[in-house]
Amino acid sequence: MKELSLNILDIAQNSVKAKATLIEIFITQTKNTLTLTVKDNGCGMSEEMVRSVTNPFCTSRKTRSVGLGIPFLKLAAELTGGNISITSRLKSQNVSDCGTTVNALFYTDHIDFTPLGDIISTIKTLIQCNPDTDWVFVHKFDGSTVSLDTRELRGVLEDVPLNNSEVIEWIGKYLKEQYDGNRL
């Protein structure tokens, strides 16, 4: 993956497949670290599954037995001296507090750190393709915060879907203005 935002686009699909209704993406940057958290309220995984998801030959898919999303993220983090951790609670065991959280730590001053890249494009794509899921995005850096919560948008939009072309365009501009404003 050429950009970290592409890894994010990729692993967020796992949360979609886990039938999450809310997926939260947090990126927090300090001087030399970037912490990524993808948290969902989906079906969760068993302890055994959590242990084996970093294995490329582990996948919930029935058609082929290869899954590279999490291994790629792990590799990207470890190349910078960082790491990933995954916690999960099965829906079948703990209905009120189920889901999976993936945490990844990157050292941004390491030469092998993959730049974040076009994160706005990733958020737009996720919403475009999964308009019935709710998305929270919070990016903190240099004392600034860029955020989006589709539950707020839905409150205004009512029956107009989130993947309406004008809404997607609005989301892109809304995020871009926040980033531009913070740079001033």
Partner: peptide, 12 residues
């Protein structure tokens, strides 16, 4: 838009 598609440039 699986891992393979994204890595090959599906987002743009």
């Amino acid at each position: 838009m699986a891992t393979c598609g994204i890595a090959a440039g599906a987002r743009p």
